[in-house]
Simulated assay, not measured.
Amino acid sequence: MFKGSMVALITPMDDKGNICKKSLKKIINYHIRNKTNAIVSVGTTGESATLTQKEHTNVIMNTLEFVDEQIPVIAGTGSNATSESIILTKKLEKSGISGCLNVTPYYNRPTQQGLYLHFKAISESTYLPQILYNVPNRTGCNLLPETIAQLSKYKNIIGLKDASGDLSRIHKIKQLVGNDFLLISGDDTTALDFIQLGGIGVISVTANIAANYMTKMCKLALKGDFNKARQINKKLNTLHHLLFKETNPIPIKWAAKYIGLIESDTLRLPMTPLLQKNQHILKKIINSINL
């Protein structure tokens, strides 16, 4: 169910900062047409940090409605409070989501034992499949391979999204977990190499605006046709980097508006609009690859 190009979906807002259901439906239809393999709703790219819990739940439910069972939906349910993650996960149990993406607790910088007990508690509270999410440059903590191995023993902890960009981790993790444990890239710039080393796909920021390219690249890579996959990745490489020229999701929201997928690139404070100089750079690369 979870493999290939999976989009870390942006959360569209109107000019006043309210959730824009019209744009959400439009961008979801774009992913259905371009055969994106799964949608992650309200992860980091979906601005989970600035949505209220009610908005968070509503966006996931709207996503499920617009998807209409055509693509698996993975809900971002992570928090730096274990109890909050459990509450949100339990609330979504009968919603129709295919699984949860659980980020490592941010800001409070737990120990490895704290990380283990956090994810263990969430796992034991639900039957929903759980994907661990490691993104140390945003959370201030790093989920180590040994801790991942411990957690992989829980039946409903099915995989890991690793956005560390550290490809040396893959081999060590694979040695410690079972063959059915899913390894998913969370870093577009290294995603193709990640798949070649044994990953099953990517949860992608770039896919928000280049869904067709990302779907084709992942499909080719998973078939073992890395020469053709690299041709696509070479075309996207500059874009991968530019989409992190400023903090995600600032550039990707501007880009989605520029190509007409959403009506506004509004973000909530403390996130601010893309700088004018970076708009010009991003516009040039978008035009050069005909997005």
Rank of each mutant, 00 (worst) to 15 (best):
A8M: 11
M13C: 01
D15P: 00
C20K: 00
C20R: 00
K25Q: 14
K26I: 03
I28H: 01
I28D: 02
N29W: 02
R33H: 11
K35P: 02
K35M: 06
S41D: 10
V42F: 03
T44W: 07
G46A: 04
T52N: 05
Q53L: 15
K54N: 12
I60D: 03
M61F: 05
N62F: 10
N62T: 01
E65G: 04
D68L: 05
Q70L: 08
I74E: 08
A75P: 04
T77G: 14
S79D: 13
T82Q: 01
S83G: 11
E84D: 11
S85P: 05
S95V: 08
G96R: 09
L101V: 12
V103M: 06
Y106M: 06
Y107F: 15
P110G: 05
P110F: 06
P110S: 05
T111F: 05
L115Y: 01
Y127R: 03
L128I: 10
N137C: 07
N137M: 11
T139F: 06
G140N: 03
N142T: 08
L143I: 06
L144A: 13
P145A: 08
T147Q: 09
I157L: 03
L160S: 13
S164I: 01
I170M: 10
H171I: 14
K174T: 11
Q175H: 08
F181E: 04
S185P: 11
G186I: 10
T190K: 15
A191D: 04
A191M: 07
D193V: 06
S204L: 09
A207R: 05
K216Y: 06
K223Q: 14
K228G: 08
K234S: 15
K234A: 12
K235W: 07
L236F: 09
L242M: 13
F244K: 04
I250A: 02
A256L: 11
K257T: 12
K257R: 13
I262M: 07
I262K: 07
T266V: 05
M271S: 13
T272C: 13
T272P: 02
P273N: 09
L274S: 02
Q276E: 15
Q276S: 14
K277S: 11
H280V: 08
H280F: 05
I281P: 01
I285A: 03
I285Y: 04
I285F: 08
I286L: 15
S288A: 14
I289G: 10
N290V: 09
L291K: 03
